[in-house]
Design a protein around this nucleic acid. Structure first.
Lengths: 181, 181
DNA sequence: CATTGGTTTCATTATTTATTGAAACTTGAA
DNA sequence: TTCAAGTTTCAATAAATAATGAAACCAATG
């Protein structure tokens, strides 16, 4: 099976973007390929489709699994493993978001917490701690928010997302609403 | 000027995280250093502080400026350029966010738009286009949202952020509110 | 208009990261 | 058990990325 021009362009684009999205070229390509391919694919099909080594695909699969982006499927009477996206586009975006938060925010939050436990011992440290405190609070807020969003039902999320410019108005009513609750 | 242990740990951490945040180790370190240092620093001070070459600092400055994260200052009667963070922590986070959106989302959105203009010519492409359409819509929504957030006043943003678990309740009132407007 | 304090550039080198492919491993079926 | 189809691992290699430092550049000053 060879890709149409358009599909090929998409897969290659995913490759280019791969490293910006948090993985690398090959893994970006694999992800793109699996997303636009209707049927689950074997590792060999992926390797052939992208002209990369079998070993590389194996690594990539492991990585994509660690991001919880793909799932394995079996076809009765067939020994091969078939891979497919683990959910809808929305699910996948969510996973990437969560996973990146884990890698990009959590470690810093943890360092800052440690660093802020004992008080500053001199002026330089005092200023530094103020700054770190700001970063800490910002990251905590983001964290709280993201876990809040996870908790919302898909409908609520859709509703929130679609809200768009209405968000300002909604905020203006916030106080009123919170009083009523 | 040498860094205290804690401050040093913070700067090094920023280095480790650098590549995850979208730049590289040195630039992460530079950013961290400038943030926790009260006074603006010269390029040489930065190079000394981080034990890296003068040339590297120059590159890093250029990059940090392209992210709009630092600003140049001059001290009367002094020929050197002094560098300092370009705004509050909040401002900087915002810039990183915007800049990353530009690098991580916009190019894909643009590719998808192009790709979705002409209709699919066969079944494989039809399925692929459906998927691409979903990605497209998702990215559009995110884009719209992020520009919406930019438009909010700092107070509104704070208010929204602090909302936390209240968000669900607020959403429940959305329809009612939108009717009233 | 030459000197000097300062900055930038960029070819070279060093470091890091990704890829290959052969060997080791796993597992279901005969 | 053994075989064979399939998967994983990992040392070696290739490719990409970052860092150095010397030379070029720039601009204020005497």
């Amino acid at each position: 099976m060879t890709l149409s021009d358009k599909n090929y362009a998409f897969v290659m684009h995913c490759g280019e973007m791969g490293s910006r999205w948090g993985f690398n070229r090959t893994i970006g390509q694999m992800c793109g390929l699996l997303i636009i391919t209707k049927e689950p694919m074997t590792a060999n099909e992926i390797a052939d489709g992208l002209s990369i080594s079998r070993g590389n695909v194996s690594m990539g699969i492991k990585e994509l699994q660690s991001w919880r982006l793909i799932k394995v499927q079996h076809i009765p009477g067939d020994r091969k493993e078939y891979y497919a996206p683990a959910g809808t586009i929305w699910d996948m975006a969510n996973r990437v978001f969560e996973e990146r938060k884990k890698r990009e925010i959590d470690p810093t939050l943890s360092l800052l917490r440690d660093n802020l436990i004992e008080p500053a011992t001199n002026d330089d440290e005092k200023f530094a701690q103020q700054q770190m405190h700001e970063i800490h609070d910002l990251l905590e807020t983001v964290t709280k928010w993201s876990s809040e969003l996870q908790r919302l039902s898909p409908e609520q999320l859709q509703s929130l997302m679609k809200l768009g410019s209405g968000i300002g108005k909604v905020l203006d009513f916030k106080d009123k609403i919170l009083k009523k609750q």
